[in-house]
Amino acid sequence: MSATQIIFWFLSALALVSALMVLFSKNPVHSVLWLIAVFFAISGHYILLNAQFLAIVNLIVYAGAIMVLFLFVIMLMNLNKDMESQKNLWMKLAGTISGGCLLMILVSLVRQSPEIAGKIAEVKTGDIGLIGNLGKVLFNEYVVPFEISSVLFLSAMIGAIVIGKKD
């Protein structure tokens, strides 16, 4: 087993276990911290796939900005203690079973699909994920969506202020 494979399995296990802990944690603050662990694992996957720009953006935007916003809101509402009323057991069971069925069907579909059999995602090589290459394409072909996204941010900012304002 090569080092790449060991890193892949380690990061996958870390992502799955942390994602499950997000579900099972009673305390919302612990859920946020486990979700940050998931994001670190996914960033590790990006680095393994040589998509370094996305790895750094994922860490800065998701683990840095969005999760701090979540923590901030949870602590603002003082939800540290467990006050979640539980759904009844049958609803939980139905949710878990339907999610598990979806996973089972999709996995069996993937395993017998001939189109992707034997295809390899290249790891550690290829320079399409480097920032120079992505920046050239972003500012040549995707300038208009990029500028529109700045308008989207402006409207989101104004929307958040208007919604959150005490009337």
Binding site: L16, L23, P28, I74, L79, E84, A94, L103, A121
Partner: peptide, 29 residues
């Protein structure tokens, strides 16, 4: 790495997210 491994990992994460939306009641979670 075979692409199937990545697909199955992503599917597992996605389904964990779906189960979380279905079973939890805290809107932040």
């Amino acid at each position: 790495m075979p692409i199937q491994y990545y697909i199955i990992l992503s599917l597992a994460l996605f389904c964990i997210g779906i189960v979380g939306v279905l079973v939890r009641r805290n809107v932040i979670i």
